[in-house]
Computed example of a mutant assay.
Amino acid sequence: MIEFLRYRPLLFEVVERKGLGHPDTLADGVSEAISVELSRFYMEEFGEILHHNVDKVLITAGETEVSFGGGQVVEPPTLIVGGRATAPEGEDLDALIARVASSHLERSVKNLEEYRVDSRVREGSPELVSLMKRGANDTSIGVGFAPLNPTEELVLDLEERIRGVRGAGEDTKVMAVRIGERLNLVVAVAIVSRFVSSMEDYREVKEKIRETILEVVDADVAVNAADGEENIFLTLTGSSIEMGDDGATGRGNRGSGLITPMRPMSIEAIAGKNPVNHVGKIYNVVASRAAREIAEIEGVEEAYVTLVSRIGAPLTEPLLRAVEIRGEVRPEENEEKRIEAVVDRHLEGIKDLVEEFVAGRLRVC
């Protein structure tokens, strides 16, 4: 089904990204890293990917005492991994989860040294396990849109620039609000205590972050807007999981790497779901890729793809397959057939996505 609407720029928009060390992004990253490692194990041991979904990671914040120049951990954060998985034969399941979770945490938050990992993953139900070879394991929604607009591209770009400032931690959050031509950016950045010896140093880091943003965009920029005289975003590790905030899989960025409430979004947690028949992951990737290809067709300003599965049905036969096109002129019949063919081709190529998932090449957060 194809629907055509005339393209009309938004009068205002809101775009958000939670950075690499944000608690929710960390939970997503751990979920996906475990799924990737399980998939590799399964392929090596059994020649196929077995049932699993580890998309229920919760990070509970710890407690620290932080001061300029350093600090200490009072109670480390705890990462609780829930979900279902078939136990591999070559390594204890809990040990695998602890190893992979630790690797991801340490790679993502380089000043994090103390934490706990609590694995509560158990075998899946026979009904869901049996669906691995029969069809979709859930009735779920996948959505995708293209292209990214300038505000969305900016928000994606800013994270790496911000983290490049000396003293900035990995826990960042950028909220962009555009009203007409005016752009407002509210930015939160965990400042690492060992890089700042005084309040003056802290303010200098904030100002350097602000200047770094203004080098690439003309906007009203507020950095760590909640700071008071003594209550500031100063951290030992560079992430608020040390004391300030908890995290959970699925509460952060969508598959685009952004949170875009002005665009269609699925509330599915993409990270940690198996790449063989879990449509909560697969359909979001397929919809996004199809939308990007459709958006390249002449006359298409924006493309939106929506896919809805039916549990047990073949993944190539969604309950709903819909495309919304926005442009100045409705595509001709032959172009509409081309658009339908794009969606069909991406659905038929679902099996080819497994290799990319296992290689960790597909963005899920």
Rank of each mutant, 00 (worst) to 15 (best):
R163H: 02
S140A: 12
F357V: 02
P76L: 07
V276Y: 02
I259C: 11
E332I: 05
T64R: 01
A188D: 13
R6I: 05
E204R: 15
F46A: 11
L307E: 05
V186A: 15
E204Y: 08
R134S: 07
E242Q: 10
D55Y: 11
A341K: 12
H104S: 00
E65I: 11
V329A: 05
I97C: 04
T25C: 05
I270Q: 09
E113D: 15
N224S: 10
D220G: 14
G250E: 08
M199L: 15
V186M: 13
I259H: 07
I241V: 14
V155A: 09
Y7W: 15
I97M: 04
L347A: 04
C365L: 11
L156F: 10
M265E: 15
I97D: 00
T139R: 09
E332G: 14
I80Q: 01
A188T: 13
T237I: 08
P147W: 11
S266V: 08
F68T: 04
T60V: 14
C365V: 13
I213N: 02
R326D: 06
E160K: 14
I2V: 14
L112C: 09
L183V: 15
L38E: 02
E16K: 15
S309L: 01
G228F: 10
A341Y: 05
V364Y: 09
V14E: 11
E152P: 14
R363V: 12
G83Y: 04
E113F: 14
P9V: 08
I232Q: 10
G312R: 03
Q72K: 15
E152K: 08
R178H: 11
V81W: 05
I141H: 08
G238A: 11
A248E: 12
N53Y: 07
L93A: 06
G69N: 08
D28E: 03
G82S: 06
Q72F: 12
T151W: 10
G142A: 09
L5E: 14
D352W: 06
G135W: 00
N334H: 04
I282M: 06
L105W: 02
I209L: 12
L353G: 03
V305Y: 07
D118S: 09
I350L: 09
M262L: 11
V216P: 00
E317R: 10
E152Y: 09
E152W: 13
V189A: 05
L214M: 14
A61Y: 00
R178G: 09
N111A: 14
E324V: 15
A98T: 08
N231I: 13
G257A: 10
G69L: 07
R345C: 00
H104L: 08
A85L: 03
S130H: 03
I191L: 14
G142N: 10
M132N: 08
S256I: 07
V354F: 02
